Computed example of a mutant assay.
Amino acid sequence: MKNFALIGAAGYIAPRHMKAIKETGNQLSVAYDINDSVGIIDSISPESEFFTEFERFQEHAWRLNRAQKTKLDYVSVCTPNHLHHAHIAAGLRLGCDVICEKPLVPTLEILNELRTIEKETGKKVYNILQLRHHQAILDLKKEVDAAPKGKKFDVDLTYITSRGKWYLESWKGDPRKSFGVATNIGVHFFDMLHFIFGNLEKNELHYSDELKAAGYLEYEKARVPWFLSIDANDLPDSVIGKQTTYRSISANGKQIEFSAGFTDLHTISYQEVLAGRGYGIDDAEHCIKTVEHIRDGKTVQASENHAHPFLAKLL
């Protein structure tokens, strides 16, 4: 049984990590968050220590590390995006391997800093890239891998997840903290595209504001117009009044259905990490490079073949 600490226990994604720790037969020893709305711990690991001040959390972790029985093995990081680097570094320096939500960090420069800290501590960083474990994605990858050499799939990526006015008031609406909508809601899709279709060859940004972004990605084996939005006004007429989220990925006109099957992906990710097969810094590098380019790049006019169908109503 491994001992875990969790940083960011009050966040949206934290319960999936708590559940994964429990379902893999391990123990959540201590958790931390500046927010004390963490009642979910009672149903998962009621004996866990909890702190709302990082200094007290860190001091408790050092005390745990004095004895082999209580020594922390892993730190799970579920904090806002801009804090990932600092909390990963703290976990590594506690002598723990670290499991972190995506985006791991915002830039390749900071990613290389994590590489340095890995070497200094002898510990390892793992990134949750759960779509790589989804069966529908694995099936598509198998189909793509079997395709003739040189074949490129025509892929369309659309993801609209309606958010209320709270979103822009939260850290997610602050580009200094979330790194913008394309990074915050798109990074795992961009990782998925790389996982299936190979290295990125072209990256165009066609539109970007605080609510949505659109562009074009071309991989070794795919051409991908993409559209990401948190604006309910972008929902297609076919779903308005029925659902607040619209997710669509098609390859050569065939819809890839992966709305189901998300429930256990964090647990599978933890199982892979514990078995020594987790995704590390090198695996995360490609999608970090992709979103860094999108975030820093200038918009260009889309050619007819590269434009996402939803782009026309924005221009």
Rank of each mutant, 00 (worst) to 15 (best):
F189N: 07
L315P: 03
V125R: 00
N26K: 04
S37Y: 08
R277S: 08
A5V: 10
A232D: 14
K119I: 13
Q68W: 13
Y219K: 09
K313R: 14
A251I: 07
D191Y: 14
L111C: 07
T79G: 03
T24S: 06
T244A: 09
M18Y: 02
N81M: 02
Q301R: 09
K22R: 10
L104D: 00
I44T: 02
R56K: 06
Y159K: 11
A251R: 02
K19H: 07
P148L: 10
K141N: 00
T183C: 11
Q130T: 10
S208R: 13
L274N: 08
S259Y: 11
K242E: 07
S37M: 13
H17E: 01
K149S: 09
L168D: 12
K221A: 08
G173Q: 08
K69V: 15
H134R: 06
N233L: 09
I117Q: 06
Y126F: 13
N3G: 04
S37R: 12
F57Q: 00
K172I: 00
V38A: 03
R247H: 06
N127C: 15
P80T: 00
A213F: 06
I281F: 00
S238F: 04
H84S: 01
K221R: 15
G8H: 10
S250N: 05
Q255R: 14
Q301D: 10
D36M: 05
E292H: 01
K212R: 14
V291T: 11
E204D: 13
L6T: 04
G278N: 11
I281P: 01
V125F: 01
A67G: 12
C78S: 12
D237F: 11
F189I: 10
A302Q: 00
C287K: 00
K123M: 06
L94N: 04
P80Y: 00
G215C: 12
D42A: 14
Y159D: 11
I99C: 10
G164A: 07
F50N: 00
Y246R: 12
E220D: 13
E257A: 10
R63D: 04
I268L: 10
R132E: 07
S208I: 14
K202N: 10
G173Y: 12
S45Q: 02
Y12W: 10
N65K: 04
W166R: 11
N81Y: 02
M192L: 15
T79I: 02
E120A: 09
N203E: 14
D264F: 03
I249D: 01
H266A: 02
S238R: 06
M192D: 01
N3Q: 08
I88F: 00
I160T: 07
I117N: 02
S76E: 06
V239D: 00
K221H: 05
Y216L: 13
